[in-house]
């Protein structure tokens, strides 16, 4: 576990419609990425995960360089970045247990991988779903399985792309608390993309606000000059 390392992000990416040009540091803990749709949040996550190759810049975690404009970038599968997609992207043909064990290093014996998957599902309080497939899950259950899958792979960084947006308030608070617990234990640099002030303040330590592909503001979540309604307005 590489807990304690910072994730440094510097990205320049030209697309037909706009230019993404951002630089920020993600400390262990949660950095909230805020901004209107089209501000470049998802592309930023894509670059960090290795799905999109930036034109210029450098992405590194501690001394591990994931992307450097002068070198070949580290392929997606070797970055060990857990990416929880908005759609969750659970594998529909696999049981919850197989979904969760998919990301566990294959050097570990199969029985051990299964046990770890079971443990993680139980920790996320969906142990009873282990042998069931995603189409039978409720929204909240699917979210728990997706998070279990992300945690079980022992990620070096965690990217959460609005994973809580489809949940009702009660379920969301419960889940936020559990994610908060895991993050406090594992100390992994985490980026949370959200439009919701309450998610930001429940999980976030730091806020990076994007607009039209640029960072327009960075602040600690408890910065008195950063009022959450303002964030909410910016998110719309």
């Amino acid at each position: 576990m590489s807990g304690g390392d910072n994730l440094s992000v510097r990205i320049v990416l030209h697309t037909r419609s706009f230019t993404l040009d951002v630089a920020f540091e993600v400390k262990p803990g949660v950095t909230v990425l805020f901004g209107p749709s089209g501000s470049g949040k998802s592309r930023t996550l894509g670059c960090i995960a290795g799905i999109v190759r930036p034109d210029k810049g450098r992405i590194s975690l501690g001394s591990d360089v994931w992307f450097d404009e002068t070198r070949a970038s580290l392929p997606i599968q070797r970055r060990r970045v857990a990416y929880v997609f908005q759609s969750l992207a659970l594998f529909p043909h696999m049981t919850a247990e197989d979904n969760v064990s998919y990301g566990i290093a294959r050097t570990i014996p199969k029985a051990e991988r299964r046990a770890t998957a079971h443990d993680m599902l139980a920790k996320m309080r969906v142990g009873h779903l282990a042998d069931r497939k995603p189409h039978t899950f409720s929204g909240g259950e699917a979210q728990r399985v997706a998070l279990a899958r992300a945690f079980a792979m022992k990620p070096k960084a965690l990217l959460l792309d609005e994973p809580f947006s489809a949940l009702d308030a009660g379920v969301k608070l419960e889940l936020l608390a559990e994610v908060g617990d895991w993050l406090a234990r594992e100390r992994v640099p985490t980026i949370l993309v959200t439009h919701h002030a309450e998610e930001a303040s429940a999980l976030g330590d730091h806020v990076v606000m994007l607009e039209k592909g640029r960072v327009v503001r960075e602040a600690a979540i408890d910065d008195p000059t950063l009022s959450l309604p303002k964030i909410r307005a910016a998110a719309k």
Partner: peptide, 24 residues
Amino acid sequence: TLILAARTLGATKLRAFFTVQVPL
């Protein structure tokens, strides 16, 4: 997205193809 999810979970292109794309 399912294929990308497999890749972020550590699968090579070939493994993602055989374990996700083909079964689906």
